[in-house]
Structure formats: C-alpha cells, structure tokens
Design a protein around this nucleic acid. Structure first.
Lengths: 342, 342
DNA sequence: CTGAAAGCGCTTACAG
DNA sequence: CTGAAAGCGCTTACAG
C-alpha cells in the first residue's frame, strides 16, 4: 500500500505538506493541493489506521459490549446493535463488537489497549461489575440500560416506570379493574435486569392508587414454557380483563394462546405490549404497544458518546440520564372490558 | 497509561528487554523476567494496540461485513454474528462489525486502512460486488455463503443442494408423492441469494427423478403476508401431503396456520424445515429440520481465516469451498401420507 | 505557504 | 543474556 511518503514523493512535496493538504488543517496553495490530491488518488492512498491512531491518540472506533445469555430471547438484540453501528458510522466511527462472556475482562482489554475512543455498554445489570471499570477508563462511556449507580456515565433507557404507569392508566381509563402483568423470567431479575422491576413496581403502585387489581408474574423466555405460562395465568385469574406484557417472548407467544382459548382481542381481553415496531412487524403482533425504540436508544448513546470523545468541553459537562418517554402505539387491542371474561 | 518505557524504567532494564520479557520471544534471565513482570503488573501495563499494530503489521482484529435489508427476517442473523465474534475471541481476535449499506465502500475502508487482519463476508450474493475488492485486498477473506465465483477466497456454506435432495428423499421414502416447497421471497433471489435456488433446483431435480410432484413457491419474509401465503398454497395444492420450508419466517408462521386449518402434523401434513436448533427453540417449532448451523459456519470461516492470517504457509494453500452436510434433526413431524389431505 | 524534525508506543534486527 | 537504535506510518508543533 502507498504511504504518505509515497504521495509526497509523487507530488514533489514534503510529507508534512502532503499530510496538511489532505487534512486541510493549514492553508495550502491551490497548485500544491491539486498535485497532492492527484497523487493520493493515483496511488489509491488510504492512511494507515494504526499509525494515525498512534499519532493522534484517536482510533475512530467505538466499542460495543453486549452480553448474550443462554436463557435469553435473542431476536430483540439485533436492533440495538444496528442502532449503534449505523449511528457510529454516520458520525465517522467503526464499531468493535465484543460479546465475550467475561465483560469486565473484555472492557479492560479494549480500553487499556486504546483500541476504542469510547464504549457503549448494553445489557446493563443493576449492580454491573463493568461500571467501575468503565468509570476508571480514560475513554468516555455510555449505557443503554439503567444501573443502580449512574455516576460518571451517560445513561439512556426507556422510561420503564412511566411505561408501567401508562399501561395501567390506559386500561383503567377504559374501565378495567383487574389486570395481569407478565414480566421477564425471574433469572433476568436475579441478574439485575432493572427494567423488569422498574416497570412492575411502578405499575403496581399506580394500580394500587387507582384501585386496580394487578397480578404481576414472572415470565419465561422460550417456547413452549412461555405459552404454558400464559395459559396458566389466564386460568388462574379468570376475572382479569387486561394483559400487560413486558417480555418479547411472551408477546410473540400470545397470538396462539388466545387463539387456542378462543379469546378475542380486545373483545374478551385487552392487551398492551412493550417492544419495538420492528419486532411487532416481524412477528405480526396485533397489539397496542409501548415502543421500546432500540435503534433510537442506540443512536442517542452513540451521539452523546461521540460528543464527549470529540470535544474537551463536552467532556466536562455533567453526566446525563436520559429516559425515552413511553409512546403508546395503538393497534386497537384495548377496549372496555366485558363484565366477566369467565 | 503506562508505556513499555515506564515498565522498563520501573524494572531497571531497557525497553527492548522489557518487551522481550513480556513476549517471551528471546531468553531472559529469571531474575529480570520477574522484575519486568512485576513492574508490568504494578503499573497495570497493557500494550497500546495502535503502536503494536504499526510495529507488527497485525491488528488482531477481524472485519465482519454484514448487510441488513429492510425486507429481511432479521432474527436469524444474530447467530451467525455470534459464531464469528466468539470464535474470533477464542483465537485472540476482536471483531469489527460493519453493517454499512454500501458494502464495497466499507470493505475498501477497513482493508485499505489496515484496520483488520482479515475479513469475513456474510449475506453473499451470487454476483457480489464486494468479492473483487476482497480478492484485491492484502488481507485474506472468508465467506459465509456461496457466490457464483469462489476464486481467491475460502467459502463456507450449508450444502443447500444436498439439503433439497435430503428433504425430498425423506418424504418420498415415506410414500409422499406431492409436495410443496416454500422458499424465501423472490426479491432475495433477485438480490442474488443463491441458497434459494440451489435448494429449490436440486429438490426439483430429485423430485423429477423420483416421480414426485413438487410445487416450488417463493415466500414472504414477514407476517401476516407469509401466513396468508401458506394458507394460499395449502388451498391451491390440496393433494400435497408434505411441506418443505426453506424460509425462517414461514417456519415461524406455520404453527398458527396449521392450527387455524385444523391440520395435524404429521397426521395430515408432513413438514421439514431448514433453520438452526437455536431458532427452533426460540420459536418452539415442532418440525423436523435440517440444521443450518450458523454458529458452526461462522466458526469455520473464522478458523480458516485466522490460519491464513497467521501462517505464511497456510496463505499459499489452495482456497477451499466447504459445505456443511445437511443433518436432518427429527422432531417426528413426518409420517406416511394420508390417502388425501383434502 | 512549505519543510525538517520530533514524537506517538511498540517490535525487532543488529551488536555485544 | 542484554542494550542502543531503527523503523512501522502517521501528525503536528517549530522554523523559516
């Protein structure tokens, strides 16, 4: 490959002049600039990323740390990742995708070695062991997800508490007085998935205030367990007229369950989910839902991260915790309740 | 961050000695090695990746180029990616995930700038514009998918032709004489997705040889279109007793379709799919299927790629085209046909 | 407006 | 067994 020295020689100038002509970082005579550009073009010159990184202390690469647990529902993950990679690219960055099981080690490796200019962390646990490492790292970090301690990092997430309230309020307004909430599996909670209890606790609180009975249950992440669970819940609470679903796998499984039971939505049962429009389209889910906006969250995290990476001033700004407000997308799966479902 | 100079100073040796002590690339006295290791440990020394890349001309990063089309069924993609990232990491490499729409530009960028030591290409089209670029690149490349011209690259894919034959033969052996094959959507074919017609053409040919009627149809990638299509096909060919599915979205949609029609599998209809075990588990698909082995394919591609990256000898070896033989995983969704489904 | 030189942090022949 | 030095390919003060 051609180096900047080759370009300089070809253009008959010094290496520094060639560099400046290419970067535009200082005034260059029109004639020289033309010759340098032509030479670079002729030699198909592309700067060596490692050399540039060494000289500028910038890699133009962002780290994306994601964790994949055996017992999780993977299909929703891809959209978060694409939100990050696509936004990063728009801003001139490439993305190092790190899926190593040992997230702490992985984070240390990519930050200590200066492979990346900044890091986006996904699958945030309430007490995430990676956070102290990221706070101590020289690169800025952004989270998609909400940890117990947000200090020193920019945090982006759906407002799960408001989501829980919105779901309950919507059905209460329609006249429902007994609801079921299906969350993620219990082991997600044990792993510290705050989005589970944040939505649930806020929903329970709001239900209490409104005099609504809310049965909150853990879910399952896979078929056929999740289908069985839905059947079981509908059996157990025959008076419940509304179903809230904070669990992609459960949402995907629900159509066959209602079909099998001969239940009409919303005639016999009102349903509100929480997932992305893309997910809804893929699985053709006919339910009103709160948009979880994975692409937007990824994009927000990256934009803030890049701001901090590129501007000394931005790096001094206070850290932000930004919640996306829940947006209820209507698919007409809610209606006033029948006197009794049973 | 500490540099090798800091480590050397701390240990009271030269930078080269420190480097050699750490790399073990030349004999070092026990005493000195101990001091260097202690110093590195004390200073939490990690080599700067850019500097090392510049000095060694190796980045220890692999590029993974994937393309995401609006009209595709995304959930299957993640597993291929994880196959690559996890195997890469096991071999000491990180992965740059590039999802840019303009694959040619993206490939040029990461290879010309020497950001990566090798490249894995996914979503291969029959006449893939990225291939000439990859052949001309200084880094070796591996494909997951089968292009029209395999020269100069290592190619890994499921044996879709054999898959088509296995599916037909299996049902023929059971006594079926009229089958339906649902492939991917037509636009996937137009984009050059060879796996569609490779499976289809081989299945058609084998069916012809065996005297089996095979109705080959394009599919859809999303609900509810794919569900409607399945209904339509079952309406159109009432004498067909077996269904072959080379389309994840169609497989995911089939359970509700058979349920809605009151069809029993395999009593009324025998079914064979083609997807991964992980996909089957996620969607609880009750069908016998040919394992598409996305993780294995990603792993094979990476292993071969790394071999070529790391060994001059390996780089001279002839390029390989390696097909995974279809493995039919039985879920008891096939049986001898009823005299007539209608 | 342009050039010669230093420096980024490594590795690795070259010498001893 | 160890050290001094060159070199990887850039960028950017420093001089003019």
């Amino acid at each position: 490959m051609a180096t900047i020295a080759d370009v300089a020689r070809e253009a008959g100038v010094s290496r520094s002049t060639a560099s400046y002509a290419l970067s535009g970082k200082r005034p260059i005579s029109e004639e020289v600039r033309r010759r340098v550009l032509a030479a670079a073009e002729a030699l198909a010159y592309t700067p060596n990323a490692g050399a540039r990184a060494l000289a500028t202390a910038q890699t133009k690469v962002l780290g994306l740390l994601a964790q994949f647990h055996e017992d999780e529902f993977a299909p929703a993950m891809m959209q978060y990742i694409l939100g990050v990679t696509n936004t990063a690219r728009d801003l001139g960055y490439d993305t190092l995708l790190v899926t190593e099981a040992d997230g702490v080690r992985a984070l240390r490796r990519v930050t200590d070695s200066r492979m990346v200019d900044g890091v986006v962390l996904m699958n945030i646990a309430h007490d995430d062991a990676r956070l102290p490492v990221l706070r101590a790292a020289p690169q800025p970090g952004a989270l998609v997800g909400f940890p117990g301690d947000c200090s020193g990092l920019d945090v982006f997430d759906l407002d799960f508490e408001e989501t829980g309230r919105v779901m309950v309020e919507h059905l209460h307004r329609l006249g429902h007085r007994e609801l079921i909430l299906v969350s993620h599996p219990e082991h997600v909670v044990e792993r510290g998935g705050a989005y589970v209890w944040r939505l649930r606790d806020a929903a329970l609180e709001r239900a209490r205030q409104l005099g609504v009975i809310l049965h909150a249950a853990y879910g399952e992440s896979r078929q056929p367990a999740v289908g069985r669970l839905l059947h079981h819940l509908l059996d157990t609470y025959p008076a419940a007229t509304g179903l809230l679903i904070n669990n992609e796998a459960a949402a995907a499984a629900l159509p066959s369950v209602t079909y099998e039971r001969g239940l009409r939505v919303p005639g016999d049962l009102s349903v509100i989910g929480r997932y992305s429009a893309d997910f809804a389209a893929t699985f053709s889910l006919p339910y009103s839902f709160v948009e979880s906006a994975p692409d937007r969250l990824g994009a927000m995290a990256v934009r803030q991260l890049v701001r901090r990476v590129e501007s000394q001033a931005a790096r001094q700004e206070p850290f932000v915790v930004r919640f996306i407000s829940p947006e209820l997308v209507s698919r007409d799966s809610t209606a006033p309740p029948r006197p009794s479902r049973a």
